[in-house]
Amino acid sequence: MADLESSFNQLTEMGESISTLLRELVAHLRESRTQLRQEWARRITEAKLLTAMSADEVFNEATAVYDQYVEALETGTFEALQTYARNLSERIIPRGVEIHEVVGIVLLLRDVLARSLFAKFQGDFGKLNRILDAYEPAANRIANTVAVGFVQERERIIREQQEAIRELSTPVLQVRERLLILPIIGVIDPHRARQLTEQLLRGIRTNRAKVVVIDITGVAAMDSNIANHIVQTVEASRLLGATVIVTGLSPEIAQTLVNIGVDLGKMTTVGDLQGGIEEAERLLGYKVVPTEEQTQQA
């Protein structure tokens, strides 16, 4: 009974004094800023984290993170830290910094600070305990905020890159006068299919193309929507006055096309890209002659 009472008193005391303790903690961290920050930077180097950055850069970032860390402890608000974590991630992700490094350095800081608390309050075990009770949840939340910020930023970058790849992945190439090649690689969704058609039709007009080779060797799978879209692209190209040759139909895709009953009558198909280009050259009236033969003839 007496035990229960005393622990209840302790709890009340803790609730009342948590902000006082944090204030004391923050004051200590401000006081020892120079020394703790150096210790942290040293530990980072020792653990071979952030190797993509120079020692000066590590120290500068460490200082900024340290100050943000202390501020978050003091104010109990994490928005500023969140913003900082996102900005930091934006700067370091392109340099190849990985998630384990980011989590690693934040955990190291947590260790460095905890050790300094042990050192300072080792004479008063009860107080040390109370300080750690105040410190740990806040420190965990900080680590969490930074890690989540990093992951979110990385996901944003990945989304942007996907968009960029999508733009890049339908290049309309002119290989010779009046001959365009459109290599399609990867997954075609309806959005990309439409983009592809528009790019090709404009390409035909601006390059005055007469023959187009669409190579789908790099297309993994195709459904009836996409197949019909390709057929439409072929028809639209013809309306502009260009002939389309489709190359690189895999056995699986050929099977799919026949099974779903796509009208292949309107498409000229040739086995591979090389054959397609040869056919295109024939249509354009080119004749490819090996140079040796030419010399002999001459």
């Binding site: 058609t197 528009e198 039709l201 404009r202 035909i204 007009r205 439409q232 692209t233 028809e235 639209a236 190209s237 309306l239 502009l240």
Partner: peptide, 9 residues
């Protein structure tokens, strides 16, 4: 025109 051809098909 390209847009016209696209709409036609």
């Amino acid at each position: 025109q390209p847009e016209v051809a696209f709409s036609m098909v």
